[in-house]
């Protein structure tokens, strides 16, 4: 019997796992339900001990929850994102938000939507750079660990390089990549105010689920500025190997950005 998480990072497979079938081998109901387990992601056919959850399943749940909990506290790997930018020929700019630690980030969402004072200055300097780091037609990436840095650390460099490549082929200029450890999606507004790009796209770690601690979300916003809401953003969610793959997610993101730049709009007004 397997007693360790599978090599792909997913936890113990439940479909076809030995637990429920073994335990319920003599039971018609148990056998029937175990046969259905492969047809849904839901945690069915767990079996029961009395009315309680069997040990094996209690532990599997705890393993998944532990992964999600640890994901919330995973350190955002700034150096790795910077290296990814360098490989993709993109210019990284590292900033801080007003959320000074994870607890503050969780308790005060507004702090994750605002730049720390020094960081606002760094971006203002960049905006006034005569070399023209941020052109009026360029698209700026923002990368943040969000509520789970696990997926962003692993996939953001690849998403950046693939998407930037696809955009270059379509004649869309990609500006610098702003890297912020504890950022929320609303941070796009303040960065937009300072850099005034045509559009921005934020790659951010999504709230970890029990079965998906490593999801990356990508938010697109045309002419980002103060006061804009989720209704004026578009989102591609669940980018991760077990969800929307990095390749497919990057394709979808490039398509979304291309449409937004062509229509000069984002959010609910953007046409499919």
């Amino acid at each position: 019997m397997t007693t360790e998480p599978a090599a792909d990072g997913s936890t113990l497979s439940r479909a076809g796992s030995a637990g429920p079938q073994q335990r319920d081998a003599g039971s018609g109901q148990g056998r029937s339900l175990a046969g259905l387990a492969g047809r849904t992601e839901a945690r069915i056919a767990l079996g029961r001990s009395g009315s309680g959850v069997p040990t094996r399943e209690v532990l599997r749940f705890q393993a998944d929850h532990a992964m999600a909990r640890d994901a919330v506290h995973t350190v955002f790997d700034v150096a790795r994102i910077e290296a990814g930018c360098a490989r993709a020929g993109l210019r990284p700019v590292v900033v801080d938000t007003q959320a000074s630690d994870t607890a503050a980030f969780l308790r005060f969402p507004a702090a994750g939507r605002r730049l720390a004072a020094g960081s606002a200055d760094i971006l203002a300097e960049l905006a006034s750079d005569p070399v023209g780091a941020v052109g009026p037609d360029s698209m700026v990436f923002i990368v943040s660990g969000g509520l789970s840095a696990l997926g962003v650390n692993q996939y953001a460099p690849d998403i950046l390089s693939r998407t930037a490549g696809l955009l270059a082929d379509r004649g869309i200029m990609v500006g610098p990549v702003v890297i912020a450890a504890r950022g929320r999606v609303g941070l796009m507004n303040e960065i937009g105010e300072i850099l005034t790009p045509a559009a921005s796209t934020m790659l951010v770690g999504e709230r970890p689920g029990l079965s998906s601690a490593d999801s990356v979300g990508a938010y697109f916003q045309y002419r980002p500025r103060a006061g804009m809401t989720d209704a004026q953003r578009n989102c591609i969610s669940n980018i991760r190997p077990g969800g929307l793959s990095v390749a497919a997610g990057s394709e979808a993101l490039a398509d979304l950005i291309e449409r937004g730049m062509a229509q000069r709009v984002s959010g609910t007004e953007l046409k499919g």
Binding site: A42, V53, F61, G209, L210
Partner: peptide
């Protein structure tokens, strides 16, 4: 919720087992 794990809304609620308990 099956196994207390809502695989759509991504949060943990109470399970079928919990109701019986």
């Amino acid at each position: 919720v099956p196994g207390a794990d809502d695989v759509m809304l991504e949060y943990q609620s109470t399970s079928f087992h919990d109701i019986a308990y």
